[in-house]
Design a protein around this nucleic acid. Sequence first.
DNA 1: TAATAAAAGTTAGTAGGCTAACTATTAGTG
DNA 2: CACTAATAGTTAGCCTACTAACTTTTATTA
Lengths: 156, 156
Amino acid sequence: MLMHKMDWSKNIGHKTRVMHNYIDKYFHTSWEKKGIEPTRMQCATLHYLRANQEKEVFQKDLEATFSISGATATNILKVMEKDDLIRREPVPTDARLKKLVLTEKGIAFDDAARENIVRLEEGMKKGFTEEELTIFREYLDRMTQNIVDLVEENTK
Amino acid sequence: MLMHKMDWSKNIGHKTRVMHNYIDKYFHTSWEKKGIEPTRMQCATLHYLRANQEKEVFQKDLEATFSISGATATNILKVMEKDDLIRREPVPTDARLKKLVLTEKGIAFDDAARENIVRLEEGMKKGFTEEELTIFREYLDRMTQNIVDLVEENTK
DNA sequence: TAATAAAAGTTAGTAGGCTAACTATTAGTG
DNA sequence: CACTAATAGTTAGCCTACTAACTTTTATTA
């Protein structure tokens, strides 16, 4: 059998994993002893709740927005509730739902996180033209769809 | 303060995270009851050890190749040793090192994993030209470097 | 209306990812 | 040679991520 030797330096899945992990690391290193350190997904959740304060937001909305499973969402929200960044309130009209509400502390941390998010957004794009970014997004969407198709083939 | 509302559908970090998670899911769904289910990083490790059977391979090599921390490497290898996919053998010339060796079972699982890896590699690239893939890799490298620069600014 | 299906969220268990702190060993330097 | 640096790997503790199985509640349909 001919040995197929993978060149990891050209592997797009590998590159994606590495980039993904560095983004986590960015958030981890962005807090110089301000007490707590909201993680990447916590910052994203704070941001989402803040931007949708006029609406009612439930766990299922986070799951759809961020493409995470129910179990993952429960984990993230459990930690955030423990750290007093959010509350989960019952909804009178539907006992299955729990309304997600920012606490005062959650709002304060969202303010603090905002500059970190903006700095990352700007910094990531350094040296990229708008055209390149559009192509980059399109490639990511296309390749993700290819992988989704493979997963569906596996599970059909 | 003007509310900055993030459009997650255009966020490249978000897209990268989603693609990354679907690759994990691909590996998870690629085993129809063949007993054990080697995960993404386990398959990558098996592949790497197989391709470098003539050399001596140590944990630090995996850390460098896959850009993972020592703790993460220890975790992955611990599980693989428990499942009898690899052994960790002492090295006479340097007591700090542990040589990583594939077991018979490890070799068998690498064979079984090979078709899954090839199918993913092919499937991911469906509809992409070689030129597009080259550009895609270049974008991932450039953006990852941008993020590394931000992390280094944070930690300097 | 009663039975069934669908939806929302939780729990258990596991993998991969990290940092910080640690042990042990080897290499380098005054 | 002795002291210090660096290297290799582990452990503890945490967060994100998943599936599978579960409870509770609401919606649908026979």
